[in-house]
Design a protein around this nucleic acid. Structure first.
Lengths: 223, 223
DNA sequence: TATATTTTGGAGTTGACACTCCAAAATAAA
DNA sequence: TTTATTTTGGAGTGTCAACTCCAAAATATA
């Protein structure tokens, strides 16, 4: 996205209200291919580092095709954000939907660390990276990214809340705060791991936060 | 930075080995003005979103001046990173160099939250933002950013270590891990706050981690 | 003061980028 | 089958980006 060039229309509401008005099965497939290609490239190179032409090549479509499905690059970026929101949340299922025990939290932590290690600590979190780049530049993008984080936070919160509601946590624990703190530690850990190219920060952040959560557990062996 | 255009030279070592070979007093001032201008713009718009021409205008210099002091944009970016490393660490002094009590940690936390609130949660951490954008694209930049984080981590670590060495922490505490975890929570909190435009995530992340550190304190009232 | 070096002005070059256009092919609707 | 709509190909277009060049002014050095 080139600074603030050619930006005649500031409107950005109508884009996601009716995202797919009338698309043939073939059309939907093409559109999906474009979004997936854009998501991949923007994850690897950032939004500004990915040209529309790059996306065309990666998806194997022509210029007119891309602009048939997306009015402008910004609209494609919004579609990519929705795509990544689904991907990130989806790829953590079913772990994410059952974070209602210390064992489940530990498994989730292990899976995250393992996955990032396999990736070589490249890319970090798709939502986090997009957030860092776009939050102050594209209000519409910021909103969607915040929604993605909120979904994520809620999934964690539900798990902690379940533990709390089962009476396994001291009453002075605040599952909501802990969930948000855990997400923050995760995001920070991912960022630091990406910059340092090592698992240490991610492990330290998550482990400390899990330890902290553990410290609120009641009796029944705080394993 | 435009994709991978005109990138004939991959060498990037000689740039910071001898950063300021022979510069007049006037020359140093001009160079400093350029770096400060670039740092400001890149913090606000990202590296890719800031053109060399933008920097020229902001600093009030001509094209030949900028390219007299910096061989290419990438070299300017490296200078900006060094600048931000100093700025970030420097702006937290003297708080950062005396994080050797819970009270000091709390004051530091309060200052961070207050500052971000005043900023309207824009920009986040200069090092973190640059890290997110550049870590996977510019190896030299990644190294400098990692060094900046390391300095930061060390400052925190020294504080926690002092508490530990005074015997005020349980012996099973790991000041090194806690320091890194605290930095992760801070970075994640900053990122989430930037995306959500509210202090909540930053407060939750830091408070949880400070609570966790507090839980290691021995007797002497865990205030 | 004389000479070497650094600093500056500003026009110019090359290429990439976001986006447009128009007609043809494919598909759906009637 | 006919007609309307969607999908596609591919060649533009204008702008802006990074970077170059050369000579003049300012400053340091001898």
């Amino acid at each position: 996205m080139r600074k603030a060039t050619n930006t005649p229309t500031e409107s950005n509401i109508e884009s996601q209200t009716n995202p797919i008005p009338k698309l043939t099965k073939k059309g939907q497939a093409t559109r999906a291919r474009i979004v997936a290609a854009a998501a991949k490239l923007m994850y690897e190179r950032g939004v500004a580092g990915t040209s529309v032409e790059d996306v065309q090549q990666e998806a194997g479509v022509s210029s007119s095709q891309l602009y048939h499905y997306f009015k402008e690059k910004r609209e494609l970026v919004l579609a990519v954000i929705l795509f990544q929101n689904e991907q990130v949340l989806g790829s953590q299922e079913p772990l994410l939907s059952h974070l209602d025990s210390m064992e489940a939290l530990q498994s989730w932590r292990d899976a995250l660390v393992l996955y990032q290690t396999e990736l070589g600590f490249q890319g970090g979190c798709p939502i986090g990276s997009l957030g860092s780049e776009l939050a102050d530049l594209e209000p519409a993008a910021r909103r969607e990214l915040a929604a993605g984080f909120a979904q994520w936070e809620m999934a964690i919160r539900r798990g902690l809340r379940a533990i709390y509601d089962r009476g396994e946590m001291r009453s002075d624990a605040q599952p909501e705060q802990l969930a948000l703190a855990l997400l923050a530690a995760l995001q920070g850990g991912l960022l630091l791991a990406k910059v340092r190219k090592e698992a240490g920060p991610l492990e330290a952040g998550l482990d400390a936060m899990l330890d902290h959560i553990r410290s609120y557990l009641i009796e029944t062996s705080a394993k």
